[in-house]
Amino acid sequence: MAQHEPERILLAHGGGGQLTSQLIRELVLPHLRNEALSPLGDSARLELGSTSICLTTDSYVVKPLFFHGGDIGKLAVCGTINDLAVAGSRPVALTLSLIIEEGFEKPLLERILQSIGRTARENNVSVVTGDTKTVERGSADGLFINTAGVGVRLPGVNPGLDRIKVGDKVLLNGTIGDHGMTIISQREGIEFESRLVSDCAALADLTCMLFERTGVKFMRDATRGGLAAVLNEIVEGAGLAIEIRDANIPVRPSVQAAADMLGFDVLNIANEGKFVAVVSPETADACLELCRSHPLGRDAALIGEVVASQGVPLVELRTKIGGRRIVQMPYGRELPRIC
């Protein structure tokens, strides 16, 4: 290859790990920097007159379009709702953009739109505007969807990495790895004894309840890059360290078996209905109890705590045999087109 070859975008740049973050920092931010964007949160916080809102957008390129536990339509509604929800807002409205490949079957599109309508209604959000584009055969893989969302910020709720302190507890609302392992096993046509099901779900009902009734200091949904990515983002942003206990992290045995077989670390695998919350030690038990009272938090667990950083902010795992190891930010290549 000649030396003048331009650098190219790799699939891994979309993986939600180190490369994604590098792409955003080096290529996107320098041109667009502003106060609302720069924190790179799940949603931007904006003040419009006396109203405080959250605004977010996300594109969905999942393959296959239909998977156990959901489809691209449900994912496009839930994913955007979750980005609004974990930022401490109540989602109210969505936009919907469809990029459709020539030749796509209309009945499939209708099934996906039904799913979008149903998921939006179930979660009290309205799709209020949208767009449709078609592209030539071969220019898109069936269907891509973009949704943007607006949420109204919950009064008095102000989550932030700067509020995290040594001694705070880390709460997870249920099992990890379900979405990613479902997609990869379906994509590769691997069937396991018990069927894997995506955890794709809208979390706003649960998150609003937690924000309103307890002292949640920070929350983020654990999507691409999995639990490992979120915890690393937290320690980097807060300048502290986190110690988690393997024995406390809920994982379905079928998901663990699939991950082991395919050589994946379940901590790096994508979820679509899971969040990590950092809570004060005084409120941790109440948060856990409240979380478990909700259908989307039944398997919730306190998985670790914030500790002082020994120089570099690190996530450390206490393994089931009493050993220790570091949990790094995933690189990004493991599973493309997972959401």
Binding site: G263, R318, K320, I321, G323, R324, R325
Partner: peptide, 15 residues
Amino acid sequence: GTHTVAIFRSGIRST
């Protein structure tokens, strides 16, 4: 290689 990863992942060296 699978042993290498299993040893690191379970933190055996630290014990």
